[in-house]
Structures are given as C-alpha cells and as structure tokens.
Design a binder for these strands. Sequence first.
DNA 1: CTATGATTCAAACGCTTGTTTGAAACAGCG
DNA 2: CGCTGTTTCAAACAAGCGTTTGAATCATAG
Lengths: 205, 205
Amino acid sequence: MTVSFYSTKERILGAAEELFAKHGFAGASLRQVTASAKVNLAAVNYHFGSKDNLIEEVFRRRLDNLNERRVQALQRVKADPDATLEDVLAAFIHPALDVSLDSSGGLTFVRVLARAFAEHNERLRKFLSENYGHVLKEFVAEFRRHLPGLAKQEMYARLDIISGALTYAMTDFGVIQRRDDSSDAHRQRSAQHLIHFAAAGLRAP
Amino acid sequence: MTVSFYSTKERILGAAEELFAKHGFAGASLRQVTASAKVNLAAVNYHFGSKDNLIEEVFRRRLDNLNERRVQALQRVKADPDATLEDVLAAFIHPALDVSLDSSGGLTFVRVLARAFAEHNERLRKFLSENYGHVLKEFVAEFRRHLPGLAKQEMYARLDIISGALTYAMTDFGVIQRRDDSSDAHRQRSAQHLIHFAAAGLRAP
DNA sequence: CTATGATTCAAACGCTTGTTTGAAACAGCG
DNA sequence: CGCTGTTTCAAACAAGCGTTTGAATCATAG
C-alpha cells in the first residue's frame, strides 16, 4: 500500500477537475470533491479560499501551458515563409489536442473547458477571456494574412464556428458512438479532419 | 394594465427555458423559475410533478417541432433527383435555424439545447437521443448516398464535428463580439456559412 | 343557490450546499 | 525537549434546495 504521493492541493485540483467535467461547476459539490480527493471538507477553503477560486485554479493550471504552446507554435509558423493556412490552423489546434492528450487528466480538462463555454457564468467568461483573448487575437491577425480577401467580420464569424467545432471534436460530446480503437489514434485523425475541414471552410468564397 | 395572457403552465415553461439557458439545469432553481413566471412555488410540482419532468417538457415543446421540420425537409430532398449535398445539409440546418428564429424564445431554447449537450446528465442524454436519434440516422443514410466514397466511420466522425459546429454557431457561444446588425440577418448568413463550411469539410478526401 | 373538482397559496418538511470555527495533529527549528 | 507556525479535522452555521401538505380560492355544473 503506497501512501498518497500528491499534496493536498494537487489532490483537490485533480478531483475537482474530474468532477467539474462530469457534473459541471454547480453540479459538483465541495463535499464530492473533498471525498474523492480523500481530504477534509475544510481543506478547500483553507487552500483556495472559496469554491470560485478553486474553479479558477483548475483552469490556470492548464491554460497557461496551452497558451504558451500556441504562442510558440504560431511563432514558428510566422517565421516560415512557406507556411500555409493549414499550418496556422495546426498551430491553433495541435496544442489543444496535445493538452487533451496529457496522460494525467488532460482530456478531462478539455471537457471542463467545454463546460466553461457552455455555461454563461460571467466571472468564468471574463477569466477565460483574459487567458484566451490575447492569443486568439494574434491568431486572427495571422489568419487574415493568409486570407487577404476575407473581410474581418467574416473572418471572426468563421473562426467562431471553428472554435466551436474544435471544442466539440476534442471532447467527444457528440451522440455518435465511437469505434473501440485507441483513443490516441482517434484524436490524431481528428486533428487532421479538423484542419482540412477548417481550411476548406475558411477558403470558401 | 393587462392581466397575464398565458396559462400557468405556459408561463412556467417560458421562465424555465429562459433560466435554464442562463444558469443551467442545476443552476436555475424552482424558486427562481416560479418567481420569474409570477407563479407559486408549488405550481411546478402540481403541473409537472417534478423538476426533472419540467426539464423534459421544456424540450418536448420544441423538439417535436424541430424533428418534424427536419423530416419534412429531408423528404423533399429525397424526392428531388437533382438534390445536392448542400441541399441535404440545408434540410438539416435550416429547420434548426428556424426554431432558433421563433420570436417567442426560440433562440433561448437553442441555448438550452447546447446546455443539454454540454451536461452529461444521463437521463437528459437518453431523452434527447430518443428524440434526435431516429432523425439523425435518416440523415446519415442520405449523406452517404451523396458521398459514396466516404467510409461509414469517417462519415460519423465528420458529422459529429458538423453537429458541434452547428450548435455553437446557433448559440452565439463564441467569445467573439458580434456587430450590431439585425440578429436575424446574421443568422441567415450563418446558415449559408455553415452549409458551405460543412459541405467543404464533408467532401474533403 | 350549493356542491364538486381544479387550481393557487403560505408554510413547512428534510436535505444539501458553501463556509466558518476552534481544537487537534503535525512539522521543523532552536 | 519545548515552542511556533502550518495543516488537518469534526462539527456546526445559515442559506438555499426540491418537494409535500392542507387550507383557501376559483370555476363550473347541477
């Protein structure tokens, strides 16, 4: 019997991520979280101050990483004079898939992320916009460089659709039953589909 | 001062739809709903039996209509020997947009629908699958008639993405701020974008 | 009119929620 | 060892939840 290796804070974050993905932010109670983390109920308020702060910390733990990967991928694309629209899309999509492939709860976090989009919680939206907004803006600028004929308003409308599709594809939210092949392989194929799909949609007149 | 025109049941359904869209099913309480509907708290359990039944009734009120419109649109496409892939997609997408354009809460309902997809509530998923599943299957059969080269597994994967994109596009979930033109006009353009976007994605090799 | 069934209402039910409390247990330094 | 600051713990808090109750009100048929 190995004793628990992770700290109380880490165990709370992991359990919270899992339960937020499964039941939503309002649907998962602190008693569920602390029971799953094998931690005292009061530990959440001791270490995080409140449930809202815990929610933000669940996001921050992974969003910083995702944003950094995307910025780096975008910089590589910018430096390449032969880069195509597909390369820009790959710089946007692959880091998200990479995060979802993180062996310790990455896919779970992507499900949490989709929850955040679906919920209209004002505080959460603001927090996410502050973490996502800046990077998204950089991508929009680069997309427009590859699609000079596309009006700005049109560009935003189509990117909106792509972001939604990306979120859905990454979280297996669909009603369709999957085959039982390795989910890693499935996700790799999903990335290719998404890139082709998005590129075709963006290039449409 | 005009007295209330709608019945108690109708006012509850309308208020519930609005609040479920805004705060989710767990997040919106029956006290909020009944207060917003200007109705006694006990009226929900009297007219619907339980909160779960109320949720189902909110869906049934609009889903029957949407399914009927989609089936009819698909039948028209099937009867037309010159119908294209875009026509099948239009038969799938336009009825959903029509529902969202219903002047009395249609767009609100679409937001509720997106909530249902985001939430993993087992009972809700089952209920929606029973209402959506049959029609979706018919559409898959017709899509495959227009894309004989596309493997069944591939077809499902791409339709999954399209369904997600449709849901997101219909609900303005994106972080991008819209222009202030008429939202009806915006939605009409969205439908065209979605159809072109989806057709390009489906036709990609 | 009275009588009957449907509807509304205020109040309370037991239960769960996030948060707070103060004591107990622990760790590490002098 | 004793002392100090950190962390854990059981217990309780007020507030909100879905649901139930029984009386009051309403509409309508006899």
